[in-house]
């Protein structure tokens, strides 16, 4: 059996992401990375909580944050998490087209989230003069939320690259682990966002 036959079996297994040794290794290795990412974001959250009261002038969390936009962003990201679950459902049923379609919807929702975040930062900088350098609170805020935004950019680029690269290949045991791991990354982005909207925005408003 050639390598090609192994990667394109006549009947796809129900868990194509873990059917090859490479897939299994990617799976474990990626969770190891996510454990590390948890610690990394914890240090950014810790810094934020330590510096959130070090404000300057009127630019306090209570005055700055508007919950409407954050609510829309939360809904967009949470829904995109569900659509990427749908994509993985179709991957397990070996339906490549539907998987690509749902990933496409995930990307659109993610872009919506990103647009809102760019608007938010733009608004803070131009309407309030609240920048990275205004106060320790400003630095901690932009580092934490901006780092999450950077993850969103990376996750979107990852999905788009996979979708374009494999559009003519169809699903096989070589690219199934890649799709699966990209979707894990996307869910992790939502995990971090749940804590950002709770700790930064909601607790910021409560005071």
């Amino acid at each position: 059996m050639s390598q090609e036959d192994i990667l394109n079996p006549k009947q796809m297994p129900s868990d194509p992401e873990k059917a090859t040794p490479e897939g299994k290794n990617k799976f474990v290795g990626f969770w190891m990375f996510l454990g590390g990412e948890t610690v990394l974001f914890a240090s950014l959250f810790g810094t934020y909580l330590a510096l959130v009261r070090s404000t300057s002038g009127e630019n306090t969390p209570e005055n700055l944050f508007g919950l409407e936009l954050v609510f829309i962003m939360t809904m967009l990201l949470l829904t995109s998490s569900l659509t990427s679950v749908y994509a993985m459902y179709h991957m397990k049923n070996n339906d490549f087209k539907k998987m690509q379609l749902w990933l496409g919807i995930t990307v659109v929702l993610g872009l919506g989230f990103l647009g809102c975040e760019i608007y938010e930062f733009y608004h803070y900088i131009h309407e309030y003069g609240f920048t990275f350098r205004s106060s320790a609170f400003g630095s901690a805020f932009y580092t934490l939320v901006g780092f999450h935004g950077g993850h969103v950019v990376f996750g979107l680029s990852w999905f788009i690259a996979l979708m374009l690269r494999n559009r003519k290949r169809g699903l096989n045991l070589y690219n199934a682990p890649k799709y699966y791991i990209a979707s894990l990354y996307w869910h992790f982005i939502d995990v971090v966002w749940v804590f950002i909207f709770t700790v930064v925005y909601l607790l910021g408003k409560v005071g």
């Binding site: 969770w31 190891m32 948890t38 610690v39 974001f41 914890a42 810790g46 909580l49």
Partner: peptide
């Protein structure tokens, strides 16, 4: 293994936040 990684990460995360805030 994923559970081990996540719980390990969360444990370190917990102590990191406790340390940063109490200092």
């Amino acid at each position: 293994m994923p559970a081990m990684m996540m719980y390990g990460g969360l444990t370190v995360a917990f102590f990191t936040i406790i340390t940063f805030t109490t200092i």
